[in-house]
Design a protein around this nucleic acid. Structure first.
Lengths: 172, 172
DNA sequence: CCGGTTACGTTTAGCACTAAACGTATCAGA
DNA sequence: TCTGATACGTTTAGTGCTAAACGTAACCGG
């Protein structure tokens, strides 16, 4: 059946239709947020799907990429505690624990007691993990740079400003 | 432990630090996409979390909201086929089937053979479902309108333009 | 030195999703 | 009138997440 898989994205419903429908069905409702929020989510999802496709070629999933990236970009000795990883990430400590377990299983990181604190756990890139993240990040940054080439410098800063204002409204 | 729950969002790592780290660790890499893509994802997630909190007060989750919304805004007789729902949504047909099953279990929709096509299934709002979505959408539109008040008309259209350009680059 | 509190990490149940296989209905062409 | 292709919907296994409970280590005030 037509479950639009990753390599065949669906044609999405026009955002203006959604706002128009609500304006018709709920007269008086303020529908102006739709034109902002719906495209934002759609683009975020499209980017996430695109990244997943790009990484699939390297047998890597986005959550493992995220884990290895955080450790790699911290620099030598390519080792962080679970807590430090959690702080630099948008998921819970439980999710990080699971990500580490999967990556350890795959031979990409190793766990050992931290030298600094006896209750901390140090997570370090293995050679295989280091090699993989190196390739993946270089490829991904190259690919995504080409994507955002569509935006001028002025547009980029305008976009960042708008997003920051929304974050601020969310109290962030 | 400090698993930042829904009502206590984390302070996020500065985006500029991420770009700087990669510039230092991978000299020559094009890191300019980070300043665009990372904030986009963060704001999308913050909006999703905020919506989840808002809906929790009504004992409603975002996926059920999405289902009921699509049916409600189609207008009378508040009935669509599974296929029509899938077309207006960003998830797979399997996910829609599961959403319908959950909503049916909760007494929010009912399923019956479609009159139009014998292989189609008609999904219709129950009275309870209609009442719930009415309250939820009015509340949500009001809330999210206040959020985007932070943006001027010019900013809103600039934002939409930027997102459209990214979508276009993703071939969409 | 002891007892409470806080910090770190893991484990578990439950949830919502995808991908893929499946069953059934419908249609179009030989 | 078959027959193969297509459309519609459901089911299932697997994935990755959250929330919450848990165990252990460290710290701090009396």
């Amino acid at each position: 059946m037509s479950n639009y898989p990753l390599d065949d994205p669906p044609s999405t419903w026009p955002v203006s239709d959604i706002a128009d429908s609500w304006a018709r069905e709920l007269p008086g409702a303020r529908t102006d947020s739709i034109a902002v929020i719906t495209p934002l989510w759609r683009t975020a999802k499209a980017l996430a799907d695109d990244r997943r496709r790009t990484l699939a070629a390297l047998d890597l999933d986005p959550s493992t990429l995220d884990l290895l990236s955080v450790i790699r970009r911290a620099g030598r000795p390519y080792e962080l505690t679970t807590r430090e990883i959690t702080d630099r990430t948008l998921v819970t400590a439980g999710a990080i624990s699971q990500r580490i377990a999967r990556a350890e299983e795959a031979g990409l990181v190793s766990r050992s007691p931290s030298t600094a604190s006896r209750r901390a756990v140090a997570v370090r890139l293995t050679d295989a993990g280091h090699q993989l993240i190196e390739t993946a990040v270089r490829r991904l940054l190259e690919h995504e740079s080409r994507l955002v080439e569509a935006l001028s410098d002025a547009e980029r800063s305008a976009l960042a400003t708008c997003l920051a204002k929304i974050d601020a409204a969310l109290h962030g």
